[in-house]
Design a protein around this nucleic acid. Structure first.
Lengths: 155, 155
DNA sequence: TTATTAAAGGATAAAAAGGTCCTTTATTAT
DNA sequence: ATAATAAAGGACCTTTTTATCCTTTAATAA
């Protein structure tokens, strides 16, 4: 549903929202180590997010990435759009060509409300508000790199 | 969330459920044409599903694939498990390492109920019951191969 | 003005997913 | 028996995703 690239981009941008500002810029290296993702890959993603005006950067000593006030008002869907495009999130869960309320796939009425919920969340809440939620809850933003065969079921 | 492989496998197995039985076996070619997926790829998937005892096959003239009575009692989750493994369906939507009710990601409480719903549906309904639903509704089982950039939003 | 720092950019590589082709094996009808 | 049919199996190819490396550019501080 989301590519690794998008997930990395979302988590890293949320990290920026929590830890950076115009005065305190953060290097790719610091973020990559904290989120536990490959830093050259993140560098590429950040290049793209800068071009897309989702995040900001400056070069040189004390340079790095940060969110401008404008950036902070972007939302998570902007990140997904910038990295994956929005179409990965749309489309029938079972891949059906014609799947709508007229010709619904067997999971249509389970999937559509979920999609609407998550799209609403990603579209209506700014990155800064998202980050605020995370910091309120003390959520630990580290990616899951361990062997997926060890995962337990969702609770 | 589901690979193309899994989607192909699900739709093709549902096609079998609807159109085959021990007397009337169906070739890869017929199914691939009807669902509109690449037939050599489907042949591989079906090989694997046969090995996994999800579907049945016989070689030679009037041979092909079909569902035995035992096969018909399998459920969709068996197909997904056989092709993708179950872990693609589990795991945090944002890729977080520790994401549970103690340390929920920002979309945890949107994603978990959805996952439970869809897992329940995939686990508790047999392939035959699934197929019955489809045939009752007259759902058209054809894959979406058109350019996804042309897709409209989910309704 | 030079050394240092950190992102930008381009080229490339590795891995996974998706897809194809060809030969072998089993079945069945003639 | 033999020819025809259709799956099984193995090898291979292509595209996409993920990831790395190296050089260049911009900013800053000494």
């Amino acid at each position: 549903m989301l590519s690794n690239a998008s997930k990395y981009a979302i988590l890293s941008t949320l990290y920026l929202a929590e830890h950076s500002n115009e005065e305190r810029k953060i290097s790719v290296k610091e973020i990559a180590e904290n989120i536990d993702i490959p830093s050259p890959f993140l560098a590429k993603l950040f290049q793209q997010l800068v071009r897309g005006k989702i995040i900001s950067s400056t070069k040189g000593p004390h340079g790095g990435f940060y969110l401008s006030e404008k950036n902070k008002k972007k939302n998570v869907l902007d990140i997904i759009d910038n990295i994956d495009g929005l179409n990965k999130l749309n489309g029938c869960f079972l891949g059906l060509n014609e799947c709508d309320s007229t010709n619904p796939c067997p999971v249509h009425y389970i999937v559509v409300p979920f999609k609407n919920n998550i799209l609403e969340k990603f579209r209506d809440i700014t990155i800064m508000e998202f980050a605020q939620e995370i910091s309120d809850k003390g959520t630990f933003l580290a990616i899951n790199n361990i062997d997926p065969s060890l995962d337990g079921p969702a609770e």
